[in-house]
């Protein structure tokens, strides 16, 4: 089972590289879908089947479809070279990101060691258990998100109208 984690971890990283370095938006979107699917498999391995399915249904099946549709509608083609590229960002950005990566790696290593096992007791992550928690302890955040979605729907309608 562990080997599956590493396989899909590598798939996720390669696809993420492709998201960042592809110059055609459609290819970036397709690579992001691969990342999402690989992460869904990893969620399954980590004992979160419900979240894995929600990830595929909502993220890959709805959000990314919106992205692909917008790319198709706007006919976003090949990304050309930038007219005015900031030299400063080019020389400072990558080292800073690398520093962030190393820093975080050191923290993880100090805290958990290289083989600090993720303890895996039998955790009941069935949809029923998640639903019980969601509608009992987390009922207020749940209702607040529903209002958030309502606001988002209104905002999207207002923004997408031709005449503002």
């Amino acid at each position: 089972m562990e080997i599956l984690f590493y396989i899909f971890g590598v798939v996720a990283i390669v696809a993420a590289l492709s998201v960042v370095f592809q110059r055609t938006p459609v290819y970036s979107a397709l690579s992001l879908i691969v990342v999402l699917a690989a992460l869904a498999v990893i969620y399954l391995l980590l004992g979160a089947p419900f979240i894995a399915m929600v990830q595929v249904i909502v993220y890959a099946g709805a959000i990314m479809v919106l992205f692909v549709l917008v790319i198709m509608l706007l006919n976003a083609g090949h990304e050309g070279p930038s007219a005015h590229r900031a030299k400063f960002a080019r020389w400072v950005g990558p080292p800073l990101l690398l520093a962030f990566l190393v820093e975080f790696g050191v923290i993880v290593w100090k805290q958990y060691g290289l083989t600090g096992a993720a303890s895996a007791p039998a955790l009941d992550a069935s949809p029923a258990a998640i639903g019980r928690l969601l509608f009992k302890s987390y009922i207020l955040p749940f209702e607040v998100t529903s209002i958030l979605i309502l606001v988002a729907v209104l905002g999207a309608v207002v923004l997408a109208k031709k005449q503002l």
Binding site: I33, F50, A52, I57, A60, G61, A62, V65
Partner: peptide, 25 residues
């Protein structure tokens, strides 16, 4: 037999949209 079987079916069918959209594009 998955304990999220029905969700799996919906997840897979929701991905079916891509083939149509991408074929068209």
């Amino acid at each position: 037999d998955l304990n999220v079987g029905l969700l799996f079916v919906f997840a897979v069918t929701s991905l079916g949209v891509y083939s149509v959209a991408l074929a068209g594009w």
